[in-house]
Design a protein around this nucleic acid. Structure first.
Lengths: 197, 197
DNA sequence: GATATAACCTAGGATCACTAGGCAAATCCG
DNA sequence: CGGATTTGCCTAGTGATCCTAGGTTATATC
């Protein structure tokens, strides 16, 4: 029999493509095998189990997303960089809905695999370095990073889930929220008496 | 045989309890049936299919969450109300992790069922009425509501997924993010030339 | 107490995750 | 070039799950 030339990466890619087409939760071993013209049992030589495959898709997506963000923000600063960062993030979520939901699902990822993948780490670094333009000191910087990530993550999750009633286009709110975020980062509140560090 | 006295609500509740114990994605027809001391086929008299059950759990959670928020914010105003609102939300996510993730999963919910459930609608109303204290006009009010929901939704999602490295306690960032959000709402940026409405 | 309406059951098909073991293709090595 | 070895993919099979069809029995109604 002719061989299909499978590798863990090819299996992951097939899974990612499938996720974008039919939704991340319809990514199954059998479906990926069918797409590759292979029996499902053959996949287990390259991928440990379904959860492993899903974790790999999530890491792939994290890598791709952080690359896009890096390209978009290169050479920009201040609000320009913030908007480019945010739009690259959102654009990735729109272009690859299945992969993006993979990054949203709380899943146990093989630690060794995660250590090897640059995506998640790189994403955090990019965020920190972009926000450094706003001259925040720790721990405010970390708080700001978390707020920003939360806001983007949440917005795109709600948008994908149809959480925004159709009254006002999500796009418009997105733009205005970025304005607000920019202002917020420029005037991040000093912390007051009795606040935790 | 003695009857178990099942109803759609009892099945949903059993599913919700199970979700909190073993995680939402381990909620299965068979597992719920076992918990109720019943054969899995019996559930189909009350619930259409697994996706239906999951949708019902999500709606139950939305109801419970909005009730908690309503109680927490009753009689409060301004930043007091904002903090109470946010903490009630977060507390619910911590108390019922399985049910809460149900609300985060983008799932197709039976429209008729959704129309009957007060939770989601009520949650939006609560948010609007609480934010009215900040004297925002439409469409800024809607944008602010969306930003706030995105931020909370995203923060709790990331927190549950272990998205915050252990460097700084999530709790501390949460408090500071609420401060920041409050300031932001008090000084929501006016929109500038060329911005969308 | 007879009848109707449920609730719950048994039985079974289909799909899926995953394992064990076999054969054949690619590769290594003399 | 030819044999041994490794490796890739397969067949076969188990058990779990979702879901349907159709039967039986408890409860409600009159």
């Amino acid at each position: 029999m002719a061989r299909a030339g499978l590798t863990a990466d090819r299996v992951t890619l097939a899974g990612a493509e499938l996720a974008d087409e039919v939704g991340f939760d319809h990514v199954t071993m059998s479906a990926v095998a069918r797409r590759l013209g292979v029996k499902d049992a053959s996949l287990y030589a390259h991928v440990r189990h379904l959860a492993d495959l899903r974790g790999r898709i999530a890491l792939l997506a994290a890598d791709e997303k952080s690359i896009r963000i890096a390209e978009a923000t290169a050479g920009r600063a201040g609000k320009d960089a913030l908007v480019a960062y945010a739009n690259a993030w959102r654009q990735y979520a729109h272009d690859h809905p299945g992969r993006y939901t993979a990054t949203q699902i709380p899943t146990e990822i093989d630690p060794e695999l995660l250590a090897r993948a640059p995506g998640p780490r790189r994403a955090v670094e990019l965020t920190y370095s972009m926000l450094r333009a706003y001259a925040l000191d720790e721990p405010a910087l970390t708080d700001a990073v978390r707020l920003m990530r939360s806001m983007f993550h949440g917005f795109l999750g709600l948008e994908a889930a149809g959480g925004f009633a159709h009254a006002r286009p999500a796009e418009d709110s997105w733009v205005r929220c970025l304005d607000a975020l920019h202002d917020l980062l420029e005037h991040w509140p000093a912390y007051h008496e009795g606040d935790p560090t």
